[in-house]
Design a protein around this nucleic acid. Structure first.
Lengths: 335, 335
DNA sequence: CTGAAAGCGCTAACAT
DNA sequence: ATGTTAGCGCTTTCAG
């Protein structure tokens, strides 16, 4: 299997006895080529094993057919499912995906965006809720459309695809209250993130208000986004006298549940739990975890679809898309 | 925030009154530039907001500082953890990652490899155990180094990073046999994949032989790689009279466990389970699942490190790397 | 230490 | 329907 330094467009043009332009035309499906010469060109391409050089093409056409995806962490189920939705529709439209993990570090986020820009990506999908001023600025300065997926910016200006977090959390909150709980805790990420302060906590308060329960900030908890964080925060939640919790992350929720059960509490009899992301984690435990249902794959897919339109300069009626959510009632709530 | 069509190297050269070559030198850290002119160039770059165009650079230098990663599915925990290891060391060496999901479809795998080649990636990390003749051929024909991560080809010729599957499965098998089981089932993927026929099943048989238990092919099962497959195969495993199982995938293992427990069997008292990938799924269930411990992140990281050497034409002593594995004894085995 | 010049492989007017 | 001609923005000898 020899690694032949591949043929160029010049080689095939030369072989057939036509110009570069003609070869370029058949390669790009331009119909202004006589059928017979098209055949000859195709044959030559076959024989020479010619494969167009996408880099050269990108330089000449100023389109790379590559998009960038910036995300917190591929190993996070929630984001990886969005990524899969993105990737599938990207391929559908013949885009490749340049992937970057940031761990939600603003420094790495800005570096990632700048780097993608220098690689001349045609567009960017951004995931992550840090979105500091600096990140927003560099996004604004990039000469390629950007859409947020499963993420919100404080100002709500960037094109984005999400669910209605306020409404979803409100429903979760009222659900456990209706099940008889009056001390329901909520655990989110840092309140410095818009998605927590401006959406989740707002929804939580709205739920309390609707059920006429007074807000108590000792029932507010902020954690990292992993299993051990759940294990750790659980004790504090219990100490605060809560008998139900709304969690923003499934690993955290499962951590809380396992802590409770390992410490003799019965779920859902003694304590109810609703989580937010409906990943596989919620199905694998016993009991299965009640969760807000998010169309994760679709959020990614719709975001990518929107990006294709933006890259194509199409007019878009609504750039702030909210996809429908559900409440998947399972074993960690009584109803 | 205006989308200024960015400055080129020509603009900064012109502004400073030097040649393109000089600007190129300072941008690329070539020391053959007088300190004073270097300063001037840097200032101009700053003022003009110049960012090198990586596409143009790629065309001229024939290096894109981009590698391709071909994987079955980002949402699969096992592979996404490898991907994270890959991405981290890729960034360390200033490579970007072009990611493609294949669902282990050979057609998509060959397309992915060809596509990456046309994008002129400097190297490729390939994950997935299908590796049909056709895929192998196109890999061989690509003008860029390729290394397998967490995957084996039948011939064992390609550079790769794995654990010793034979040994790992053998240990798992003898472990449950020592715990008193003489009918232990094994569930793998399709036997048409080398990793199953040439590694896992071989290890299983070696374990049986060591413990002087006769091989019984009614105890061999092949499934898809997901939770519901585990739920489904569990019944058959029980019918076959097995009292222990070695599973190749954590979701499958958890599916088996949940089926058993939902049907009144006690794990590990009545039935023992050992799984293979040690993903988060094994920690989240009750009981936690005993698993072969794989250094997943490291497999990805080491594969990527090896790829950097290959891309750099460095000599590599051993291209068939086997990283150490462990047995993480948890709640689904008695010992 | 710096510049000139020739591409890298392809696309995209503009002609014909 | 096909060819000519400029580049795209940068790297890289080769001179000096």
């Amino acid at each position: 299997m020899q690694k032949k330094s591949s043929a160029t467009i010049y080689d095939v043009a030369h072989r057939v006895g036509v110009s570069l332009a003609t070869v370029s035309r058949v390669v790009n499906g331009n119909n202004n080529v006589r059928e017979s010469t098209k055949r000859k060109v195709l044959d030559a391409i076959e024989e020479l094993g010619y494969h167009p050089n996408a880099v050269a093409r990108g330089l000449a056409s100023k389109k790379t057919t590559t998009i960038g995806v910036v995300m917190p962490d591929v190993t996070d189920m929630y984001y990886s499912e969005l990524a899969r939705g993105i990737d599938d529709v990207a391929n559908m439209y013949h885009y490749d995906v340049l992937l970057t993990n940031t761990d939600e570090d603003p420094v790495r986020e800005t570096m990632a965006v700048n780097n993608l820009a220098s690689k001349q990506v045609d567009g960017i999908i951004f995931m992550g809720n840090e979105l500091e001023r600096e990140v927003l600025n560099t996004i604004a300065g990039v000469d390629a459309p950007v859409v947020l997926a499963g993420s919100v910016d404080g100002e709500g200006k960037l094109p984005s695809v999400n669910i209605d977090y306020v409404e979803a959390i409100k429903e979760a909150t009222t659900t456990v209250i209706k099940n008889g709980h009056d001390r329901v805790a909520i655990v989110t990420g840092p309140v410095t993130h818009a998605i927590n302060s401006l959406h989740r906590i707002v929804g939580y308060k709205a739920g309390l208000e609707e059920m006429q329960i007074a807000f108590d900030d000792t029932l507010l908890f902020a954690t990292h986004q992993d299993y051990s964080a759940g294990l750790q925060v659980a004790e504090k939640i219990v100490s605060a006298g809560a008998t139900a919790v709304i969690a923003y992350d499934d690993e955290v929720a499962v951590g809380i549940m396992n802590y409770l059960r390992d410490n003799g509490k019965k779920v859902p009899e003694d304590f109810e739990i609703i989580t937010s992301n409906d990943t596989k984690f919620t199905l694998v435990t016993r009991p299965e975890v009640t969760s807000i249902g998010q169309p994760k794959y679709d959020i990614g897919a719709v975001a990518m679809r929107m990006l294709t339109k933006l890259m194509n300069n199409e007019i878009i009626d609504d750039t702030q898309i909210k996809l429908p959510h559900t409440l998947e009632r399972r074993g960690t709530t009584r109803n």
